[in-house]
Amino acid sequence: MTVRKNQASLTADEKRRFVAAVLELKRNGRYDAFVTTHNAFIVGDTDNGERTGHRSPSFLPWHRRFLLEFERALQSVDASVALPYWDWSVDRSPRSSLWAPDFLGGTGRARDGRVSDGPFAAAGGNWPIGVRVDGRTFLRRALGAGVRELPTRAEVDSVLAMPTYDMAPWNSGSDGFRNHLEGWRGVNLHNRVHVWVGGQMATGVSPNDPVFWLHHAYIDKLWAEWQRRHPEAGYLPAAGAPDVVDLHETMKPWNDTAPADLLDHTPHYTFDTA
């Protein structure tokens, strides 16, 4: 059974194996397909039109499935690997071990944002940015530059306290848990973390930075925490909402899984802590 652990508690060997599996997916071309898929949904999901991966109720189940696909790809390289999660409300500094050279590497240099240490630095030759929106082919970050502070635990708790999963109009203007977690409204959790990291993480091709997976693994864990706090509350809309994925409608691009099939993560993985 896959156990997703806090990145801060990974052993040196677990970090090494995770990095090696990610690099192998990059080498064999499978990694960039995930970047392409994400960007296609980012530019396709609109508030007034069809929306699936973002700015909609299915933001959470869509990314749960997307991460499952990526985790299975990692496990096809090394069956011992699971996606770690980054609790950015605790590990909230560029000095966190997450950004050390033995794991993801640090922030970018001032001149051009280029990450110059760690396994994903361009100089290592193992991490070309192939799916991109501009001419730059090197991984970039600007930790803490686009926005000064990562969300606090109190801000996380304020969002977890929201009793309703999502509300009409089921987009970036919605009230409710999903949109506050996604960050288009209120204290801003998920979106703000993308901005805090900067570089490719702030763009539509954000999975170019491996921290994308650790960020979303924690967003996914917060969904699970919300479910435990609100056992009476379920995914909404239940049915009949145009342009958005209802509880029992299948999601693109897989077309074989509905949000209802993904509400319970435990058939797929558990977390190291409750």
Binding site: D47, N48, V133, D134, G183, H190, H194, A202, G204, S206
Partner: peptide, 13 residues
């Protein structure tokens, strides 16, 4: 966005 604000693919969040 629904509230009238704008994003681009370069700064999407």
């Amino acid at each position: 966005n629904a509230d009238g604000s704008w994003i681009s693919v370069i700064s999407h969040y």
